[in-house]
């Protein structure tokens, strides 16, 4: 898949729909394509997250640890976004995401989306002011 196809893919995701095409291309160029083997962990509940993943291919399972054990809360497939909250505000991962079969993703790190001075804590600060 070349970078232009990735741009198409990103355009269809609501989170990126409003971003102008040239920025989307930069995003696609600078983000890493990552493949996960079955059972490999994309993100772990409680860790500090620094990246979101857009699933290009394959299926992933979202699980949450509770008092009564692990429960699967969702299954994600092509076009779904994983862990976007982490790149918008600095909070720990809310769930563990595990590859079910071979999963190909586009890894979008925090720095790619928001320059460091535009993150949510700064916005909050503005709200208080």
């Amino acid at each position: 898949m070349s970078i232009n196809q990735e741009v198409e893919l990103l355009r269809n995701i609501p989170l990126f729909a409003k971003i102008e095409p040239s920025k989307l291309k930069l995003l696609a160029f600078t983000s890493e394509r990552l493949t996960y083997q079955p059972d490999q962990v994309l993100c772990r509940q409680g860790d500090m997250g620094d990246a979101a993943y857009i699933i290009i291919e394959g299926e992933a399972s979202v699980r949450i640890a509770t008092a009564s054990g692990d429960i699967e809360v969702a299954r994600l497939g092509a076009g779904d976004v994983v862990g976007e909250i982490a790149i918008l505000c600095d909070v720990p991962r809310t769930a563990t995401v595990r590859a079910v079969d071979r999963v190909t993703t586009l890894k979008i790190t925090k720095e790619l989306v928001l320059p460091t001075d535009q993150r949510v804590p700064a916005d909050r600060h503005r709200d208080h002011a």
Partner: peptide
């Protein structure tokens, strides 16, 4: 070469 795009 270590492959690009393989997690970890």
């Amino acid at each position: 070469k270590i492959a690009y795009g393989e997690a970890d």
